[in-house]
Each structure stands twice: as structure tokens, then as C-alpha cells.
Design a binder for these strands. Structure first.
Lengths: 162, 162
DNA sequence: TGATAATATTTGCATAATGCAAGCAATAAA
DNA sequence: TTTATTGCTTGCATTATGCAAATATTATCA
């Protein structure tokens, strides 16, 4: 009944496989937005997340990028300096700022998106419709599980270990 | 017939989802091996890959970590300095060195593996057997597709763009 | 109210990671 | 034997990260 495998080979570790694929993909795409728009990877990630979910606060942006407020602050600063987003103080709570693309930000985003979406589509074409649907479902489940385990500190007692 | 979507929302980008999940997982696990064994993330990745595929040359290690010879050289240097791996010159081609765990390296690896595998299993328990099988299949397909597209420079003409 | 706590974000600084150019040494090709 | 190529390493400038502390705003409650 105890499902703990004595051996789970590396190539079946989800963290390993996901990070391999996303790193390769990232390394491949990065030169494009670096050359054309002089953006770093964290800046591009932030730009894409803001484009999708705006308006957004810095901490929401952090969550949506698996990051934290510190890191994201720098990406925000860069994007503001470049005129790609603006940061407006929230009227009701002036501690937080809501982030939105500027019109120039939208232009830059669109330019990069064209390329990224093309790469994504070509990648996804390795899967049929059913596989793609199931993959997305599984990703949702994994994300929820991970979030819940981290939130409830489910692994912490084990981590201290002997 | 042209499958290019006018809009593929961010949450369906494979690169985005994979990097979110693997970053969160990595950030969660890292303090464990950092505290207990003072290892950095690239060093731990290398250790795990060597444990799985040894003996291994530096460039094989680089491929298996979505990395390159430069980056990996530093992780190797650290692991050698710590006595976790040794680097033996290949008898037939003395440019390359084959990497293997030392017995101490095996011990350290096992200690971290216990924890990582537990986390992995708990994460994977969000999926049933069929979903897990399909996920692994899809990962294989995606990896092959990505590799083939990168190898054949399938996207490069587009990248220069207008 | 007024002191204290909590929240949202930023900053400074030490450390770690990366990218790239150039290097060395061994082997392969001409 | 000269010239290329391969495998790997080094140095150095640039970026990215982690963490502690600072600032400013809002919330709590005695």
C-alpha cells in the first residue's frame, strides 16, 4: 500500500524533466528578445505575465512567475525605465501599485509573442489534441498539488531529518 | 489548415507552465541540500545526473542538464573539490574525463535523493497511473520535437524577422 | 486616539550564476 | 608535419539571486 518507490529513476522526476525542457526552450528563445528588444529573461517573463493578467500588483506578479517580491521589483524597475509598463498607485491602498503595459509595451509584447507562439505551436504539434488536453489537465493538477503542499508545510518536518 | 492561433493564452504556453512548476519545486527543495550539504542547485543537478548516468563526460553532463560545457565545468570543479565525484582521464582519448561518484558522493546523493523522491512521489500522487504514463510519454515527445527543431535550426530564419 | 502590528514594495550588498572570448592540451585530418 | 577539430577549462564582465533592513501605508486594538 505504501507507494514510496525504492527507486524512482531521474528521467521520471517531474522537476528534472520540466526544468530540462523549459531551460532549453528559454535558452532558445532568449536571444530573440535580447537582440531585438534588449530584454532579460525575467523582464520578458514579467512583461508576458503583465500582458496577460493586467492590472496586477507586484506580489501578484511574483506569484505568477514563481518568484518573489524582491526579484520582481527589479524586473519592474527595468520595464518602467524602458517605458514598457507603468506603475500607478492604487487609489484605495497606496502601498500597492497596479502594473499595466504602455502602448509601447504592447507593441514590444506583440513582437515577441509572435515568435514565442510560433515556437510553442510547433512544439505542441508533437502532441495530438487529446494528449495536449490531458497534458494541460495534468499541469493544473500538479500545480494545485504543489501549491497545497507548500502552503501546508507538508514536507518540512522531513526536511530537517536525521 | 494553418494551425497558427491568433491567440494562445499564456497559461497554455508549455514553457511558461513548465518553468513555473520546476522553479517552485526547485526553490522548495534547494534549502534542504544547501543546509545539509552546502550544495548549489547546479551542483546538485550535476550530482544527480552523474549518479544516474555515470560514467559520463563533461559534455554529456552538459546535454543532460540543458546546459553547456562552461557552466558544467564549474559544477564539476566544485564537486571534485568536495570529494563527491572524481574525474578520471579517459585512457583512449585523454582530452575527455569520465565522471563518477566517490563513495562519499554516493552517500550525499542518497541523502538528498530520499527527500527529493518523497517530494516527487507526493507531487505525482495528484495524478492517476494513466495520467502519469501519458505525461511521461508526452514529455518524451516534446523533448524529441524540441531537440529536432533546435538541431535543424527550424526557427532561425523567422527569428531575424522584420 | 495613539501605539503597535501587519502589508506592499524597494534598497543595498554579498554571493552565485551566466555569457563569452580566449586558452590549453590531445587527437584527427590534410 | 602542419592545420583543424574536439573536449574541456579559465578569466572577466555582466546578471541574477538571497536576505536583511528600510520606507511608507494601512490595520488592529488597548
Amino acid at each position: 500500500m505504501n507507494k514510496s518507490k525504492t527507486s524512482l529513476p531521474l528521467e521520471n522526476w517531474i522537476g528534472y524533466r520540466f526544468s530540462l525542457i523549459s531551460a532549453r526552450l528559454g535558452n532558445f528563445v532568449a536571444p530573440m528578445y535580447a537582440d531585438r528588444h534588449d530584454l532579460t529573461m525575467p523582464a520578458w517573463r514579467s512583461l508576458a505575465v503583465i500582458a496577460r493578467y493586467q492590472p496586477l500588483t507586484a506580489s501578484q506578479l511574483a506569484m505568477r512567475t514563481s518568484s518573489d517580491a524582491f526579484k520582481v521589483a527589479r524586473a519592474i524597475e527595468l520595464l518602467v525605465r524602458r517605458g514598457l509598463i507603468h506603475r500607478d498607485l492604487d487609489k484605495n491602498d497606496r502601498r500597492r501599485a497596479s502594473l499595466r503595459l504602455t502602448s509601447n509595451g504592447r507593441k514590444v509584447y506583440k513582437d515577441i509573442e509572435k515568435f514565442v507562439v510560433r515556437v510553442e505551436n510547433e512544439l505542441a504539434s508533437a502532441l495530438d489534441a487529446n494528449e495536449l488536453t490531458m497534458l494541460r489537465q495534468s499541469l493544473d493538477k500538479l500545480e494545485r498539488q504543489l501549491e497545497s503542499r507548500i502552503r501546508t508545510h507538508a514536507w518540512e518536518e522531513f526536511m530537517k531529518g536525521p
